[in-house]
Every structure is written in structure tokens, then in C-alpha cells.
Design a protein around this nucleic acid. Structure first.
Lengths: 221, 221
DNA sequence: GTACATAATACTGTATCCATAATTATGGAA
DNA sequence: TTCCATAATTATGGATACAGTATTATGTAC
């Protein structure tokens, strides 16, 4: 492990593990072999275990006393709980963002939206996904509530545990794009209430798409 | 340290530290002396450090690389961010709770409310505070969204960092009680929309009271 | 007396080691 | 063969040891 930043080792390890979990290299339910991983990274178990404590707090892994560490398996209940919550939070962010955004902010957001349009036109799902994330994140930043932002990001991390992205559904990408356009229109019109409502429904729409893919959705692995 | 539960040591230590932080025995800004604490508890630094990682994830302490661990100092910005967020979340919970509560649930809630009334009548602030916490918690449980509950509880933990309770303001206890009565009335009437709105405003009202106490509120220590 | 440089100290971060509990493997009895 | 008991192995949790960096103290020059 080549150290670059003056950051602690356990943080780097935590970040690496996060990436591996999000990439589904470590799958939900998988047992995490501390010794193997420590050897892999060329470190001792100490910082690795500290990293696991952090990931456990984030809900990405579960620490079973004396039985080891396992990648969290997200349940249907989790999905049902998280999406309405995200819808409310991101909806609120959109409303607040409209109220607070300067013309320059709006321009920057429009720019991201353009990238979204381009990605959709060319059918580049990955690029669309990325621009989509950025769009949402930017709005959360504009809302100006750091706590709300961090809560949303934490929940999003948990959602990333499930492998399936609703965007891969036929037609969902176009629908998502339409919804984004509507949100942008509300921004342009300075209609905060409408922006909130549209963003709220946009999230629930993603939820519906996900459920349709796999009605059980229990083990999205 | 006498071990009772089959839970890991770092969890017990984390809980003890939480209590000490909430009790303001460890004050915001205080440096946490790992060696001293480990000796105090009769344990090694290993589980203690793991506990600190957990507390850091909860936002109760801050880990500065190579410089140690400090109890988080909550800022005015944090207060301004958290209260509106809590108001929205707890408001939503109240609405959902009204929609889902059975008569038995309502009865149990009314019971807690009675304890609140009694505590207020006798001027027992601590008892009032406790019944108040329980009342809010019960409503969050009734809402039936575990994620929402955990988000709210996490935020509440952070708020507990600031020592001042708005309840200690002259007249605030009575006002709080009135607001609770109104929420209970909405419950009784089965008016979810009103319950949401009342609970939302109840939280903001607590926010106002806190701000009035100390307009800077920056260092509530 | 003050400011700076250097040395001593103390603490953090990581590695290694050990005890205990859990799991797996092995062997015997029904 | 199947089930259970016991032994061997392995992994987790915790303690100890060590290296490197911050901080503080000391001393010297101005």
C-alpha cells in the first residue's frame, strides 16, 4: 500500500473497501476475511478492523460479535423505508435550492443538465448515471444545509449496495430525463414548490422502476 | 471493566463515552486522552480507539490525524441546519403515525402524554424531559420507518452535544406542553396533516427558544 | 528578556502477539 | 450410514510492543 495523503491508514482502507463494495466485488452477504484482506493490502489487521468499524457505522457492513464481518444485505423493507425518505429530503433540497440559487448557480446546474441530455441522446448509460448523480448532488449543495446533504449521501451509499440500477430498465432513462427536464423548468421559473414536488416524485418514480424490476428486491445481489 | 453482555468491548466503551459526552463530563472541544481513559477503564487502547471511530461516525467526536481525538464543538450553523431538518422529519413521522396508529397505539401514546402532564404540573423538569423524549420516540416508532427513526436519533445525539436545553427557559415548558396537547388532539381527531404541521412547528418552536437563550449559541458549552 | 534552534518527551498510528470462542474435522457408537 | 461427541484448527477480540511525528521543554544567541 503506497501512502500518499497524510490521512490515516484506516481511512484509506475504508475508502478502498467502500469502492469494492460499491463495485460489487464484495457482494452483499459476503464474509470479510480480515487476515486475507490485510495480507492483500500488506497491512496489519489493526487499521483494517478500524476501517470495518467505520463501514459498519455507515451501514455497509455488519459486525457480528465473535462471528466476523459481513457485507450488508439490503432488504425490501430497507428499500421501502429509504426511498420515501430520500424523496422527502431531496424534494426539500430542490425547493430550497430554487429559493437560494443565484443566476450563476442556475447556469452551472443547467450545464450539468446539458451533459445529462447529451449522455441520454448517445445512450451512454454510465455517463448519464454520473451526470445524474452530479445533478442531484449539486442541488443538494445549493440547498445549503450540510446536515441534510450528509444524511442524503449516507442513505445513497446504502442504496448503492443493491446492484440493480433502475436506469437499466427499458424506457426508464428517457423517463428520468423527462423528469429532470421538468425540474429544470421549475428552476427556471423560480417555482420552489413545484421543484420540490417534482423532485419528490422523481425519486418515487425511480423507486417504482426499481420495484418493477424485481418485485421481491429482497436480495438485489 | 466488568463485562456482562456478549457484546464487543468497543461497543460498551462507545456507550460509556456517549453517556459521558451527553452528561458534559467530556465537554465540547475537550481532548480525549486515550491512554488515560484506557487506564481508567482498565482496558487497552485498541478497543478504545475502535470506539472512538464509531463516535466519530456519529459526529460526537472529531479525529484529527496525528493530533488526537476531540469532542465535537457544535456550531451555530449546525443548529440552524439540524432543527429545520428535524422539524421536517419528525413532522412527517407524526403524520405517518396518525395514519398507522391503532387504538391501542394511541392509548399507549396518551399514557406517555399523561406522564408529561403530570411532570409539568409538578414542575419536575427532568421527568418532563424524559417523558418528552419518550413521546417523540414513540411517535417515530409508530411511523414505522426504521431508517427515518435512525436518522432522527442520530441527529438528536448531535444536538445533545449542546448543554443548554430550551426547556429551562421560563415559560418554555408550558409552551412545549401546549404544543404537545395540540399534537395529541390531532392524533385523537385522526388528522394526519394537522399532526404533521403541528409537530413540525413544535420542533421549530424549540429551535426559537434555544436561539433566544443564546443568540450566538455557537459554544453552548 | 525574547526569539529561535535543538533536544527531550509524549502521544498517535501500526504491527505483533496471545487468549478465547467458533468452526470444522475426526472418530466412535447406534 | 448417520448422528453425536470430542479434538484440531482457525478467526476474532484484546493486549502489548514499537516506530514515527507533534508538542513541549531546554538552552543558546542576540
Amino acid at each position: 500500500m503506497t501512502r500518499i495523503a497524510p490521512t490515516a491508514l484506516y481511512q484509506e482502507v475504508a475508502e478502498r473497501l467502500r469502492q469494492r463494495i460499491f463495485a460489487h466485488e464484495l457482494m452483499p452477504g459476503d464474509w470479510i476475511d480480515e487476515k486475507k484482506l490485510a495480507d492483500q493490502y500488506g497491512i496489519s489487521r489493526t487499521p483494517l478492523r478500524e476501517a470495518l468499524k467505520v463501514l459498519a457505522s455507515e451501514g455497509l457492513v455488519e459486525l457480528k460479535p465473535r462471528r466476523g464481518c459481513y457485507v450488508t444485505e439490503i432488504s425490501r423493507q430497507d428499500i421501502d423505508d429509504i426511498f420515501p425518505l430520500m424523496a422527502m429530503l431531496e424534494g426539500r433540497c430542490a425547493g430550497d435550492a430554487v429559493r437560494r440559487a443565484s443566476p450563476a448557480d442556475f447556469a452551472a446546474l443547467a450545464d450539468i443538465h446539458k451533459r445529462l441530455e447529451a449522455a441520454a441522446r448517445d445512450g451512454r448509460i454510465d455517463a448519464f448515471f454520473e451526470a445524474n448523480q452530479e445533478f442531484h448532488f449539486r442541488i443538494q449543495e445549493l440547498a445549503g444545509n450540510r446536515r441534510m446533504l450528509s444524511v442524503i449521501q449516507d442513505l445513497r451509499k446504502v442504496l448503492k449496495l443493491c446492484r440493480l440500477h433502475s436506469l437499466s430498465i427499458e424506457g426508464r432513462l428517457q423517463q428520468s430525463l423527462d423528469e429532470h427536464r421538468a425540474v429544470m423548468a421549475a428552476f427556471k421559473a423560480g417555482d420552489a414548490v413545484k421543484a420540490e414536488s417534482l423532485m419528490h416524485d422523481h425519486l418515487l418514480s425511480g423507486y417504482d422502476a426499481l420495484i418493477k424490476m424485481d418485485p421481491k428486491a429482497a436480495k438485489a445481489a
